[in-house]
């Protein structure tokens, strides 16, 4: 009876053990799977991170390039504007010009164009008047000659 009981107990233990082992194996398997998944996820995220890093670097590089181009163009424009202004004898000293940023130069350019426009208008007005007055003066001086011309 006792043996039977012992046997039963040992069987039970055995069973429990087996169960536990199974349990453990299962758990281990699960854990392994989880670990694997985690590792995969980590790898994935690492890959994404790397890709993003690469993208960012590329973008930064392009940005930098753009900035460089812009700066270069701005520089060229500045040089051109400075050249223009210098050619037009605008009273800005050369060193000061070279130190100016594009916006300031552009502003100077606009001011210059406005000024030129104003000057042209003034000049045209003076010239128109001179032309008109010359013509009228000539005519006035001619009138006595016309009279003489008629008499002949």
């Amino acid at each position: 009876e006792e043996r039977k009981q012992n046997l039963q107990r040992s069987l039970l233990i055995q069973k429990k053990k087996e169960l536990r082992e199974n349990e453990l194996a299962k758990q281990e398997k699960l854990e392994a799977e989880a670990r694997k998944k985690r590792a995969e996820a980590e790898a994935e995220s690492e890959k994404i991170r790397l890709e993003e890093d690469a993208k960012k670097r590329e973008a930064d590089r392009l940005n930098q390039q753009l900035v460089d181009i812009k700066r270069e163009e701005a520089g060229k424009l500045a040089a051109k504007l400075a050249e223009d202004l210098k050619n037009k004898n605008v009273k800005v000293n050369t060193e000061e010009l070279e130190g100016m940023d594009t916006a300031r130069l552009m502003q100077l350019q606009v001011e210059q164009l406005e000024k030129e426009k104003r000057e042209l208008q003034t000049r045209l007005k003076t010239m128109s008047k001179k032309f008109d007055h010359t013509e009228r003066a000539m005519r006035k001086a001619e009138i006595p000659l016309l009279d003489r011309d008629y008499d002949e």
Binding site: K129, K130, D132, H133, T134, R136, A137, M138, E142, L145
Partner: peptide
């Protein structure tokens, strides 16, 4: 064409200020 001689035209141009005032 004008009846004024070259010389007369020159004279008029020289005196333009006078004329101008009047105009």
């Amino acid at each position: 064409p004008t009846l004024l001689s070259e010389e007369e035209q020159k004279q008029v141009k020289k005196n333009l200020k006078e004329y101008s005032k009047q105009f």
